[in-house]
């Protein structure tokens, strides 16, 4: 019905307005700033230049931050997948009557927000925290280990904070599988490991892709967690942008850093989805 289409467009107008005016337009404008000249007085001047990018690409300080960010994001993604897969598999296949409660326990930390969980790790990893006390009690160490303000702490907390984003897509793709497929593989002579590797794992690929993209994107853009657990020496791209915007007040450079973040993320998304498609057609 033509009336249907008109009504549909009417219903979609709020979200269209919201996204174009307050999401796409501001982001485009902000990213455009990376090509503008920085001046201390006016903040930016609309003269096109590549000076901001030159500075980022040739200054080892910023290059280091980019490497560190990519390294932390990739490690976080890998560990989230390693820890999240068994959990998602268990929830999808074996949780039974407890599934509701167990899923809730995965969602609850997610809902409590980033700050709460980051603070939890400050308490856990501090020199008087539970981990150090446990290590001292077991006599693994004889004085508290410095764990706060290390890359280890940042990755640990990021894995913790972002793992639900890995678990849910994995859970969806595993729960959506017909359990008869594994049974069929069993009747055809495949053992448990074999049927997992040949049936379950390949079929859960969309979940792996989705979860990894989410975790990578979110960890690469993290500010609060690295700021509180990594400190100044462990700076990541998000913190750099944050400082350039609010403290240094060099917005064109901040925009260039953000552009690099965006480029990194979109290339990851692109590579992942291309890989996923190839996997699906193979």
């Amino acid at each position: 019905m033509t009336g249907d289409r008109r009504f549909g467009r009417l219903l979609l107008s709020p979200i269209t307005l919201l996204y174009t005016l307050l999401l796409l337009a501001p982001i485009s404008f902000f990213l455009l700033l990376s090509f503008y000249e920085y001046t201390a007085f006016e903040m930016y001047r609309p003269n096109l230049t590549t000076a901001n990018y030159d500075r980022l690409l040739f200054d080892p300080y910023y290059r280091n931050i980019v490497y560190r960010t990519l390294r932390i994001a990739a490690t976080t993604t890998a560990f989230s997948l390693l820890a999240g897969y068994p959990l998602a598999y268990f929830l999808a296949r074996h949780a039974g009557a407890w599934r509701g409660v167990l899923l809730f326990l995965v969602i609850a930390p997610l809902m409590s927000g980033v700050i709460v969980r980051t603070y939890g790790w400050i308490v856990l990893l501090g020199s008087e925290g539970m981990v150090n006390n446990l290590l001292l009690f077991l006599r693994v160490v004889d004085k508290p280990v410095q764990m706060l303000n290390t890359e280890f702490a940042v990755i640990l907390a990021l894995v913790h904070i972002l793992m639900p984003y890995m678990v849910f897509p994995l859970f969806s793709s595993l729960a959506g599988q017909d359990p008869n497929l594994v049974r069929a593989a069993g009747t055809l002579g495949a053992g448990r490991v074999r049927s997992f590797l040949e049936v379950t794992l390949p079929l859960s690929r969309p979940g792996i892709v989705m979860g990894s993209v989410l975790v990578f994107t979110l960890s690469a853009g993290a500010v609060v967690t690295p700021q509180l657990l990594g400190g100044k020496d462990m700076q990541m791209l998000g913190q750099t942008i944050y400082e350039l915007i609010l403290t240094v007040l060099n917005w064109p450079l901040a925009s260039a850093v953000a552009s690099i973040l965006v480029v990194c993320q979109f290339s990851v998304i692109f590579l992942y989805f291309r890989g996923a498609r190839r996997g699906a057609t193979a």
Binding site: F29, F30, G221, G238, I269
Partner: peptide, 21 residues
């Protein structure tokens, strides 16, 4: 998928862009 856009964009970018706006 378009409605899901803000999930795909780093939230820090959304916050900054609104500030710049």
């Amino acid at each position: 998928s378009l409605a899901m856009l803000p999930v795909m964009i780093p939230h820090i970018l959304i916050g900054i862009s609104l500030l710049v706006m």
